[in-house]
């Protein structure tokens, strides 16, 4: 349900979220998903609505640092949480390393799944569970790309992981 379809007399619940570092206070119906709140109320349309049923990953955002499908989160349940969307990762002038790697590897075609892919990939690196290309692919399986850019997506993530590993070694 989009917030614009607000029904007369429907219960409104206050919710406070920190979105990309900014505290946002809203009143919403309990049925509003985090995805609809981000897109329709906060106009952060970088997060995409693909299947709206947790099967495609286009709506992937970071909630308290963990990647989740925003379409399956009721926003009211995330009251008090920290949310990072693609808009919070980098800007055109200051790309996040994962965004830069996706550009360098041409890891997209139409681009619709890309914000979700990048949020998911950033979390994958932070989780530290993937080491091999097989593991990258498996742990990215929640993000579908109907253009089939998978090989370049996996390569971009591998680049960032190698860079992060190199930086860590240099620091040690």
């Amino acid at each position: 349900m989009d917030q614009n379809d607000r029904r007369p007399g429907a219960e409104l619940v206050p919710v406070t979220l920190v979105v990309n570092g900014e505290t946002r206070r809203l009143e919403i119906e309990p049925a509003v998903t985090l995805l609809d709140l981000l897109r329709e109320r906060l106009h952060l349309t970088g997060t995409k609505k693909g299947c709206d049923q947790g099967q495609c990953g286009a709506c992937t955002v970071l909630v308290d640092g963990r990647r989740v499908n925003a379409c399956l989160q009721l926003a009211v349940m995330r009251d008090g949480c920290d949310v990072v969307t693609i808009e919070g990762l980098g800007t055109p002038d200051d790309l996040h390393p994962m965004q830069a790697a996706f550009v360098a590897r041409d890891a997209f075609q139409c681009g619709y799944c890309t914000p979700g892919q990048i949020c998911s990939a950033v979390a994958l690196v932070a989780e530290g569970q993937a080491r091999t290309p097989d593991e990258i692919r498996e742990l990215m399986s929640g993000n579908l790309c109907r253009c089939g850019a998978y090989s370049n997506i996996a390569a971009a993530i591998g680049d960032v992981m190698a860079g992060a590993a190199g930086a860590k070694e240099a620091a040690e």
Binding site: G57, V68, N69, A123, L124, S141
Partner: peptide, 9 residues
């Protein structure tokens, strides 16, 4: 089972 995102939630 599922995906990394779903397993997180």
């Amino acid at each position: 089972g599922a995906s990394a995102q779903l397993r997180n939630a």
